[in-house]
């Protein structure tokens, strides 16, 4: 699907939290996972800005690990505050999507 950028704003951060919450991972792997999910327009830069924000807001733990090629890679894992933020995200998502679905259903 094309042109999801505007609609995804605000929810991508939650998706990234969810992915990090499953296992410690790094930017490129997160991007790939989002692409495979069907969000093909998401580039590494987008994920990078989100990771930067998560780091600044102290929601993740960051570890630099050597990678096979090139400079060391930054790996991200959720900390306690991050887990709370993730739970909040899913609660908000549940609320918003149920309301929007209700709106759609009520028009039928």
């Amino acid at each position: 699907m094309d042109d999801l950028t505007e609609m995804l704003k605000g929810t991508l951060e939650g998706c990234v939290l969810e992915i990090i919450g499953r296992e410690e991972t790094y930017g490129y792997a997160i991007t790939r996972q989002l692409n495979e999910l069907g969000f093909v327009d998401v580039v590494e830069g987008t994920v990078y800005t989100i990771l930067l924000r998560l780091e600044r807001n102290k929601l993740v733990q960051v570890a630099k690990r050597p990678s096979g090629v090139g400079p060391p890679r930054k790996f991200y894992a959720l900390n306690e505050a991050g887990c709370e933020e993730l739970a909040k995200f899913w609660a908000k998502w549940q609320y918003v999507s149920s309301r929007i679905n209700r709106l759609k259903e009520s028009g039928r």
Binding site: G27, T49, G70
Partner: peptide, 27 residues
């Protein structure tokens, strides 16, 4: 740092940032 990783992975710069470099900066 981010660009160096992209170089090591053999990617072009716009693959990394997307075509809308300004949007990347704003983010």
């Amino acid at each position: 740092d981010f660009f160096e990783e992209g170089v090591a992975a053999g990617k072009g710069v716009l693959e990394l940032t997307g075509n809308d470099v300004a949007a990347f900066c704003d983010d």
